[in-house]
């Protein structure tokens, strides 16, 4: 459903992505892992329309995304949970969720969507009238995911959702993510520094280093590969390989 063909992306004069290609099929979970500054978030921002590729193309359900304004990309069914959640902190939890359903199509079904989000995250329902900024870190992350779900996405982009959360919370967030994907209605593209958690979700994985895709395989096989074990899971006999 999402096909990225050889995109180059720049920040001003600085090239952040070099000929990156990646695809996500209907109902699939795809993880993009790699070290800090490798270009993971850049790729996410490019798919969601905040950045534009200089060359290459991004096609979603047959339509060229790299020519569509960011707000229409949401309507087409791609929604991103940005790094750090980026909630509207001085607005209430319910208002944040309502804003997730801003596009015309999602707005029609916002009450049903709201009930679904409350079902997935009962703790969010309990706090619905609080300011989003007063929630705990884990709750904020759940609200950020819930807000994205309100847009009725076909493809959910998750940027570092485990960042800064306690291990137990990370596990429960990943359980929810798995559940969101269970019915195969929503495909997931997630960016993670927590390589093990991400690859254990299953599906496929891409490894990105300094703006280039350097590896790509079934998530299970990546978990077992020597390279990943050494570089990302700290299991190799040699520390680092430079």
């Amino acid at each position: 459903m999402l096909e990225i063909h050889a995109i180059d992306v720049f920040y001003g004069d600085l090239q952040a992505l070099w000929g990156v290609s990646l695809n996500v099929q209907q109902g699939e979970i795809v993880s993009l892992v790699g070290p800090n500054g490798a270009g993971k978030s850049t790729l996410m921002k490019t798919v969601s329309g905040l950045l534009r590729p200089a060359t290459g193309s991004i096609i979603f359900d047959g339509i060229r995304l790299d020519r569509v304004p960011a707000y229409e990309i949401v309507e087409m069914g791609i929604c991103m949970v940005p790094e750090g959640g980026r909630l509207f902190s001085s607005m209430s939890v319910v208002e944040n969720l309502e804003l997730g359903a801003f596009n015309i199509e999602a707005r029609k079904e916002r009450f049903e969507a709201l009930e679904r989000v409350y079902e997935i995250f009962p703790v969010i329902k309990a706090r619905k009238n609080q300011m989003a900024g007063t929630l705990s870190g884990g709750e904020q992350q759940m609200l950020a995911i819930g807000r994205a779900l309100m847009s009725q996405p076909k493809l959910l982009l998750l940027d570092e959702i485990s960042l800064g959360l306690a291990p137990l919370l990370v596990q429960s967030i990943f359980r929810v993510i798995k559940m969101i994907n269970d019915s195969k209605q929503i495909s997931l593209l997630l960016v993670e520094q927590n390589v093990r958690m991400a690859l254990e979700l299953g599906g496929r994985g891409y490894i990105i280093e300094t703006g280039r895709i350097v590896g790509h395989d079934e998530a299970q096989r990546l978990l077992e590969s020597e390279k990943v074990k050494k570089a990302y899971l700290g299991l190799g006999e040699v520390q680092g390989e430079n």
Binding site: S48, G49, L50, A70, Y71, E72, V74, E75, C79, M80, P82, R86, L87, F88, S89, S90, M91, E95, E98, L99, G100, F102, N103, A106, R107, R147, S151
Partner: peptide, 24 residues
């Protein structure tokens, strides 16, 4: 109103608002 909430959202974080499909 929905419009008003989108205005407040855009004033807090225009990038996040764009990601929600708000025409900033």
């Amino acid at each position: 109103t929905y419009f008003g909430k989108s205005v407040r959202a855009a004033s807090i974080d225009w990038e996040a608002a764009t990601l929600m499909g708000i025409k900033v």
